[in-house]
Design a protein around this nucleic acid. Structure first.
Lengths: 213, 213
DNA sequence: ACAAAAATGTTAAAATTTTAACGTTAAACA
DNA sequence: TGTTTAACGTTAAAATTTTAACATTTTTGT
């Protein structure tokens, strides 16, 4: 099945960053038994305009229906396909500190298709310890696991000084995307992707928000 | 000391979202003993243009020096003041699941001035349990703690269906900013701020990134 | 003391993103 | 069966954001 020439060509970053929110809404609504949703209602619950919603959804391979809106199930499926989350994605997690362990234990990601297949850490004191169903492995085993299990995404939750070397190791081993939970800025080759989770940055952004009133 | 009329008037959101990254860089550089940094060098390490960096920093109350650039210490201080992170900010955390517990245990936030003063959960089985130095409290105690300790920020890491009611309770109790770790979209009065941590959304954004190549 | 040059702050243009406007489609109902 | 109308998809305008260009400043070196 050939992907649609227009819709698959390249979705602007501003739009890609909103697609996950539409997906979440579509999921929630469908789970609540709602079958149809309009651009206006999506806009209101997400704090956008209906124009933006329609403009955004025009980038995915899915059509609304006049007078009804969008089928929540159809929208959910189309968004999942567009984002590439309509199938499981294998991940490894590097850095078994508090944050890393929490993510490994947080089954919601697994339910959403992000399957962690290994947890790694460089500290000998941590290697061998259990984190939920995982046994923490040493960094020497990382490349092998990535190759054997065709791991696509690496989640980095190490101290920020260690982040770049870990990123390099992951990319060299064959991972194509990095979720960066550190405050470091990661440099990767053009064919790889990085998304920063920005947890501390979000808190700081919030500090600015609460200050000015 | 009157805040500068121009610089404090309102910094565009696009800029505010980058200020924490400059702050992080300035901190890292100063800790490494680097005293000066240019807009070009900042731009290169953050993946921006030097123009954007200079434009962004023109919003804060701080001047660079011709031929030298920006003093890392000065920049760090000015950014911290602009964002409002030059003093401690009290936070409470609601939802002592895996993610919540990890954040409570992650001392980096505390070192950066975000002081958690209480951890709350609605599940009777969890209330009374220890999370690091905290004893999980019931929701009935939330309002009292927020008022007595003048808590400014609430961190929400509950199941998404519970997020809005928890947000309402926090706002009613007097919190002025919310860090939302759930996938719910939170509605709050105009005088309050919400920042979404977008962890799952980031993974999904990454899925799109790894798909298209 | 003067000239050269590196890097800022600022102005203005370019690019992108968001919003509004509106023609079109198809469901609902008389 | 025809009319009404809600809501889409699309075009174009408005607003915002990013980038380029350059005049200005100030350090450095001769």
């Amino acid at each position: 099945m050939e992907p649609d020439a227009i819709t698959s060509l390249k979705i602007p970053g501003s739009v890609v960053r909103r697609l996950p929110r539409y997906l979440t809404q579509a999921q929630h609504l469908r789970q609540e038994g709602v079958e149809w949703v309009s651009s206006l209602s999506l806009a209101e619950t997400l704090g956008l305009t209906s124009s933006t919603v329609r403009q955004d959804l025009s980038h995915i391979d899915f059509q609304g229906v006049s007078k009804r809106g969008y089928s929540t199930a159809g929208l959910e499926g189309a968004l999942a396909r567009t984002l590439g989350v309509d199938h499981d994605i294998t991940c490894v997690l590097v850095g078994a500190g508090n944050l890393g362990r929490a993510l490994a234990l947080h089954d919601e990601f697994g339910r959403q298709g992000f399957k962690i297949v290994g947890v790694f850490d460089s500290a000998p004191a941590v290697v061998g310890k259990k984190v939920g169903r995982f046994t923490v492995q040493g960094m020497t085993e990382l490349a092998g696991v990535v190759r054997e299990q065709k791991v696509e995404i690496g989640i980095i939750s190490v101290p920020h000084e260690a982040a770049q070397p870990v990123a390099d190791q992951l990319i060299t081993a064959g991972v194509r995307g990095l979720l960066n939970l550190t405050t470091a800025h990661l440099l990767v080759p053009a064919e790889a992707s990085v998304v920063d989770a920005r947890v501390l940055a979000s808190l700081r952004e919030l500090a600015y928000g609460v200050k000015r009133r």
